[in-house]
Write a protein that binds this DNA or RNA. Structure first.
Length: 747
DNA sequence: TCGAGTTCAATTTTT
DNA sequence: TTGAACTCGA
């Protein structure tokens, strides 16, 4: 598709700072690709001197594909292209690439970052386990009073403001910060001794390295053309890094969309744009305002909502797409009906299942929809961050790979030293830790010389020796076979498959084994490489990969995901669910102007995912936080001009949905049909109701109808004193004590 | 020292 | 509902 004049202008503008102000679906990616192509083909710029930052791996991968196409080369599988190709990746993957490169040339002492080339990356869970250990064992603190998560938050905040552990002492103004200071020091010590870094460190260390003059010079020469997409989501450190790299040639192009900034909780700072304008005052500003995706209706709607933000820069997104179909508002009595209606619509609509995208605010909110789709036999896929790599069996195997790659990684070492069970119990590990702390030894060193450890009996020693034999064998093999083979070898040698499936049902067994197969399968992509290299790159990419990156395009299923995750997608039909105050906008953001505006931007992002049809839904009553809650409709719905909203025809739906449950529910409501519309739309925040149950059991008889807040209606099928079996609509027979159970008789 | 059984707390958003 | 952190018996 040909570029419009604005896009053309952005494309042709090289050798000068450039600020592209983009709107949702204004073809910014296509413009950037065209720009890269133009640079290489028309201006004869060396491909390898172009560096391009995207926000997700998926975006990076797509960009690599597009660029590869224009250059007539095969798409590089990862950031490590073997031929002359631009460096395209996320902030994190690019900085890891650069860090490794630097570390292979300079010594750690020279760089002052206390890191060796074979470092590994600790994810959020690893980080918490390190911190928990510190807080509990070294600082002797109560984890209730000082939760690891909270401490982690403070540390992350400090890191992203470039405050080191030592400097944190100056920040202390409260008890908590005093704890943070101590924990931070210990945490850094642990990371160094494990040769590990966390996500924040990837940025911090890169920044530290690039502040060394000769290294900076080298990289300024190497990457003369810089492009940063999603600039509104950069944080302070990222900003500073880019600034360093760009300071010599000033060929920096950034794409900025303030209405899609939804990552402030990850320290993204929109004020970076103010700094940008100051630092590059000569920059050319290009605005891309035409939307090529959604219909007029959807866009005017989105505009109406986003314009309620004060900090929003006035702009008008427009489109030539014809006004299309309906924007429907589903106002369901409860969450189950909400899910059923959505399921029904998906079922009735022509076209493929994969035309449908269901969005919600938080991951936990997918459940009701899942249940409903499952019942209707509709294939679906939930995109959940790190779901696959969070599974125990995957984590175990990756921990093996990590210790093989970097034997100093104590966190992983502890995970696998007794997995499968080798009778190396906590007592032995305590002794190992003691040696590690007091003699400055590493685990492999201690394990190798276990005979000299006096505190252990022979029995424990021989267990550790067994492990050491396996471990050394695997390390040796890692130099000979590629990572996928190595994984198979680990499973074989340790009999891991038997261990993990030992006590499980057939069904669970297959699922675990399938997961292992899948991991090996992913690893086979690295087969062509040198064994150690395949291990290194596999580990590096695994820690940055998300569920979304493995998205399978071939089969036909409905996709479910959070709004944040959906930022990079578009879909023909979008369902936006859980639109209630306290849930979306979330209760944490209500009452805080800046946070609320971010929620509103999130709403904007969600709405603009839709190409043709947008459904929004809420439930008057729903099960949330382990209880039933009623929240008024989201303020975002009210912000949409009423004439744009068409109410979904509930009656029509319900007449087709004549279940036992439904008719019963109507029949015992004295207000009859008004039930959906009036009695449930009271705009009150009813706090979770406490169920006081002290029933008079004499009122219950066999075959009585009862109502339960969780399982709804049921019939008593057996009864002996207080104990009854009740067949519920939403649950097969349940045995309960009707004296204390929250049931009431229905007449 | 294990592990089965029980209690109790927890839910934004993700590179 | 799930999972992690506890208890307690062997």
């Amino acid at each position: 598709m040909p570029l419009n004049p604005k896009q053309e202008e952005a494309k042709n503008h090289i050798n000068w700072p450039l600020l592209i102000i983009a709107w949702a679906w204004s073809w910014k990616t296509a413009t950037l690709t065209a720009r890269v192509e133009y640079m290489i083909r028309e201006r004869n710029i060396n491909s390898a001197s172009i560096l391009m930052v995207t926000f997700t791996n998926k975006a990076a991968s797509e960009m690599r594909e597009r660029v590869a196409k224009t250059l007539w080369v095969e798409k590089p599988r990862s950031i490590y292209a073997k031929w002359n190709f631009p460096l395209i990746g996320t902030f994190h993957s690019i900085w890891i690439y650069i860090l490794k490169e630097v570390l292979s040339k300079y010594s750690s002492e020279e760089l002052q970052i206390w890191l060796r080339k074979d470092f590994i990356i600790y994810d959020e869970q690893d980080k918490l386990s390190v911190l928990k250990n510190i807080l509990k064992n070294r600082l002797n603190l109560d984890e209730k009073e000082f939760p690891a998560r909270q401490i982690a938050f403070y540390i992350s905040n400090a890191k992203n403001n470039l405050i080191t552990a030592k400097w944190y002492e100056k920040e202390i103004d409260s008890t908590i910060k005093e704890v943070v200071f101590k924990a931070y020091l210990e945490y850094e010590k642990d990371l160094i001794s494990n040769n590990a870094i966390d996500f924040d460190d990837i940025l911090i260390k890169t920044y530290a390295v690039l502040r060394i003059w000769r290294i900076l010079e080298e990289y300024q020469e190497k990457y003369k053309y810089l492009m940063v997409d999603e600039y509104q989501d950069t944080n302070l450190v990222q900003y500073e890094i880019v600034k360093l790299l760009a300071s010599k040639y000033r060929n920096l192009a950034v794409v900025w969309d303030d209405s899609q900034s939804i990552y402030s909780w990850r320290w993204a700072d929109m004020r970076n744009i103010i700094n940008f304008k100051k630092d590059y005052s000569e920059a050319l500003v290009v605005k891309l305002e035409q939307n090529y995706r959604s219909t007029k209706k959807i866009i005017s709607w989105a505009n109406a909502v986003i314009s309620k933000n004060n900090s929003w820069i006035k702009k008008e997104l427009w489109t030539e797409n014809d006004e299309w179909s309906h924007i429907q508002y589903i106002e369901a009595p409860d969450d189950k009906i909400e899910a059923s209606i959505i399921t029904q619509i998906i079922k009735e609509k022509e076209g493929d299942y994969k035309d449908n995208l269901v969005l919600y605010r938080t991951n936990a909110q997918s459940r009701k929809i899942e249940e409903s789709l499952l019942m209707a036999n509709i294939p679906y896929r939930v995109i959940w961050w790190m779901k696959f790599y969070d599974r125990a069996e995957i984590k175990d195997l990756l921990a093996y790979l990590r210790v093989i790659f970097n034997p100093n990684d104590t966190v992983s070492m502890k995970r696998i030293i007794n997995t499968p069970t080798r009778k190396i119990w906590a007592k032995s590990i305590e002794v190992l830790d003691h040696y590690k702390e007091n003699f400055g030894l590493t685990y492999p060193q201690i394990i190798e010389n276990i005979d000299e450890v006096e505190e252990l009996n022979n029995w424990a020693k021989s267990a550790i020796k067994t492990f050491n034999t396996i471990f050394e064998d695997l390390v040796l093999k890692s130099h000979k076979i590629v990572v996928s083979e190595l994984l198979r070898e680990i499973v074989k040698i340790t009999k891991y498959d038997e261990y993990i499936t030992e006590w499980l049902s057939q069904e669970e067994k297959t699922s675990k084994l399938e997961n292992i197969d899948e991991l090996v399968n992913v690893a086979t992509e690295y087969n062509g490489m040198e064994p150690r290299e395949s291990l290194a790159i596999f580990l590096e990419e695994v820690s940055l990969i998300t569920d979304m990156d493995t998205k399978d395009e071939r089969s036909d299923y409905v996709t479910l995901m959070t709004i944040h995750t959906s930022k990079w997608l578009e879909q023909k039909r979008v369902f936006l669910t859980w639109l209630e105050e306290w849930l979306f906008p979330s209760f944490r953001s209500i009452g805080e102007a800046a946070a609320l505006e971010e929620e509103r931007r999130l709403m904007y992002v969600a709405m603009t995912r839709a190409r043709e049809e947008l459904y929004i839904s809420r439930a008057s009553e729903r099960f949330n936080f382990w209880d039933y809650v009623r929240n008024p409709e989201s303020r975002f719905i009210k912000e949409i001009p009423k004439e744009h909203i068409e109410n979904y025809d509930l009656w029509n739906f319900l007449s087709k949905w004549n279940s036992y449950f439904w008719w019963n529910r109507l029949s015992w409501n004295s207000e009859g049909f008004s039930w959906f519309n009036t009695s449930f739309s009271n705009e009150t925040f009813s706090k979770p109701k406490v169920k006081v149950a002290d029933n008079d059991i004499s009122q219950f008889n066999l075959w009585d109808r009862v109502n339960h807040p969780k399982f709804w209606n049921g019939i008593i099928t057996t009864l002996s004193w207080e104990l009854a079996t009740i067949a519920f609509t939403w649950k097969w027979a349940v045995k309960m004590n009707i004296k204390i159970a929250p049931v009431r008789k229905v007449f």
